[in-house]
Amino acid sequence: MTLAAIPSPPQGVWYLGPIPIRAYAMCIIAGIIVAVWLTRKRYAARGGNPELVLDAAIVAVPAGIIGGRIYHVITDNQKYFCETCDPIDALKITNGGLGIWGAVILGGLAVAAFFKFKKLPLAPFADAVAPGVILAQGIGRLGNWFNQELYGAETTVPWGLEIYYRVDDAGRFAPVTGTSTGEIMAVVHPTFLYELLWNVLIFALLLWADKRFKLGHGRVFALYVAGYTLGRFWIEQMRVDEATLVGGIRINTIVSAVVFIGAVIVFFLLKKGRETPEEVDPNYPETPTDGGEAEVASVASGKNESKKAGPIDGETTSTS
Rank of each mutant, 00 (worst) to 15 (best):
A30N: 08
G47D: 09
V36E: 03
Y43L: 06
I32R: 08
L38F: 09
I33C: 08
W37C: 02
Y24E: 02
A45T: 00
I33T: 07
V34R: 03
R22F: 02
G31V: 05
A30H: 08
A25K: 08
P20W: 00
A25P: 08
G31I: 01
P20N: 00
M26F: 14
I19M: 10
A30V: 05
R42W: 02
I28H: 15
R40H: 05
I32L: 11
T39V: 05
G31M: 03
P18E: 01
Y43W: 10
I28M: 14
I29A: 15
L38E: 13
G17V: 06
C27K: 04
I32P: 08
I29Q: 07
G48D: 12
Y15V: 00
V13I: 15
G48I: 10
I29T: 14
I33Y: 12
G12K: 01
G47M: 10
I21G: 01
P18I: 03
T39R: 11
G12C: 08
P20S: 00
I28L: 15
M26S: 14
V36P: 07
R22I: 12
G47A: 10
M26R: 04
G12W: 04
R40E: 13
V34N: 04
A45H: 00
R46A: 14
G47W: 11
A30E: 03
Y43D: 12
A44I: 02
A30D: 08
Y43I: 10
L38K: 03
Y15D: 05
V13S: 06
A44L: 10
I29G: 11
G47T: 10
V36R: 01
K41V: 08
M26G: 11
Y24L: 04
G31H: 01
P18D: 06
A25R: 07
T39K: 12
I28D: 01
I32M: 09
K41W: 12
G12R: 02
R22S: 01
R40G: 04
Y43V: 07
I21C: 00
V34C: 05
L38I: 11
A44R: 14
P18C: 03
Y24A: 03
P18S: 02
Y24P: 05
G12F: 06
G17Y: 02
C27E: 06
I21P: 00
R40C: 01
I32K: 04
Y15N: 06
Y24S: 06
G47Q: 07
A23D: 13
W14V: 11
A45E: 06
R42C: 12
G47H: 09
G47C: 09
N49L: 05
R42H: 12
I28K: 01
R46V: 02
G17M: 04
A44G: 05
I19P: 06
L38G: 13
K41A: 13
L16G: 06
C27H: 08
A25Y: 07
A25H: 07
M26P: 02
M26L: 15
L38Q: 15
I19T: 12
G47K: 04
N49R: 15
R42S: 14
Y43E: 10
I19W: 13
